[in-house]
Nucleic acid binder design. Structure first.
Lengths: 228, 228
DNA sequence: CGGGGGCTTGAGGCCACTCAACGATAGTGG
DNA sequence: CCACTATCGTTGAGTGGCCTCAAGCCCCCG
């Protein structure tokens, strides 16, 4: 599973995983290590003991649950900068896989807990991160329970737009199947919805791969979603 | 909205809301007050400032989100003993309504936060409660995204069985419509699924209302759900 | 006792799923 | 360098599970 190991570069750039666990004095307690995973490999499995907390340095990760017959529900995508695997509890509740070649930083969960015990700010950060995850799950329940396929795809595009658009174009790392399993649809339905949005002039495709999307009309897209 | 006000009875019985915020010394800081809500009334609304945290003393509560066209997704039912409204963040993310006549205990959110600042155990309890809520939401995403109607209803019955069965019979406080909006279905589909489970001999109805259910075959019900 | 809300059941329709074919692309090995 | 293959995405045709609409029953409650 672990493809490459490298100690972190010496330059102490600020980053959220460091921010989460470290005031300057306790800094030395927690070491940040990097790991790389090839496309498609598992980072950890559901029910495995949660030994580490992860932050995406580059690449993308999917967290999912499986039913015994293979139906899959992706709970979240983790993109550059995101922290995941924070399974407060001894076991992971999702399986995490690299969607593309991915490098992560890790810290031992235990060392975080020890620091949190004495540092109220660290404890607050843990809580606010968990709360953010909870809020995402709550919004996603509404999507999965009550939205139409077009609304789901529109919501997905708006979410990704906020998180990974660079220079006006959104380079999706995940496949149609991943999107479908995130939105509770089939890949064909996702494809049809994207084609429909293309016809409507809401989005355009760039290049010959279908994973680079440019949003032409965010306003119309937002009206196709429907939050309140 | 507030129907009746009563100060808590003097006898200091242990209860989780107290456990959450209190070590014996700080006890006096946080006062527990009771409020009662008539069936169908709102306890708080989505986007309202979250001033209080609640615990159900008796009755039942639904937490839900609405889309602008009226589609509703219930995120959770809160039954006797449950703590809710812990919206770590300044605004509530759900609307909460009393399903039946309900009495709750409340504490100011702010007083909890102050205590948490100095008491690591309280902080840990806040985090573990939020984590429990997150876990529930994660499981519910799998249900909403990937399970069939029969699997959803079976899962619902098993969940309620764990939480409110007394003397072998489960007295559901919520209507078919509430169940449907919790499971991402229509009330007719819920009704049909229950009828089907009745035909299969998995459950029986008691009395002339349809809300008292006795589970006759939990094993078969569990096999109709499907977690792993 | 009349009215209304909650529940069940049936008939029909629709949206998303299933199954299938096809084109395009990227990776593989001769 | 070029088949060869596997993977990914799109699109069409047909099906089916859940939704919609409707009727009727029962119970509660005024």
């Amino acid at each position: 599973m672990f493809v490459r190991i490298a100690t972190e570069s010496a330059a102490p750039r600020p980053n959220s995983l460091r921010d989460l666990g470290m005031t300057s004095e306790t800094n030395a307690l927690v070491s940040l290590i990097e790991f790389s995973y090839k496309k498609g490999t598992e980072i950890y499995g559901e029910k495995e003991p949660a030994e580490y907390v992860y932050q995406v340095k580059s690449g993308a990760v999917r967290s999912y649950k499986l039913l015994s017959d293979g139906r899959r529900q992706i709970g979240a995508f983790h993109l550059t900068g995101d922290i995941f695997g924070l399974a407060n509890g001894s076991e992971h509740r999702f399986t995490a896989e690299a969607i593309v070649d991915t490098t992560v930083r890790i810290v031992r969960r235990q060392s975080l807990e020890i620091v949190a015990e004495s540092d109220a700010m660290v404890a607050r950060n843990l809580l606010s991160m968990t709360t953010r995850n909870l809020q995402h799950a709550e919004d996603h329940m509404l999507l999965l329970g009550r939205k139409t396929s077009l609304e789901r795809v529109a919501a997905f595009l708006l979410e990704m737009d906020k998180r990974l658009t660079a220079a006006g174009v959104m380079a999706l790392p995940m496949s149609r199947r991943d999107i479908a399993d995130y939105l509770g649809l089939t890949l064909e339905t996702v494809s049809r919805a994207l084609s429909r949005l293309h016809e409507l002039g809401v989005l355009g495709f760039i290049g010959n791969t279908q994973r680079q999307i440019v949003l032409l009309d965010r306003h119309q897209l937002a009206s196709l979603d429907l939050q309140p």
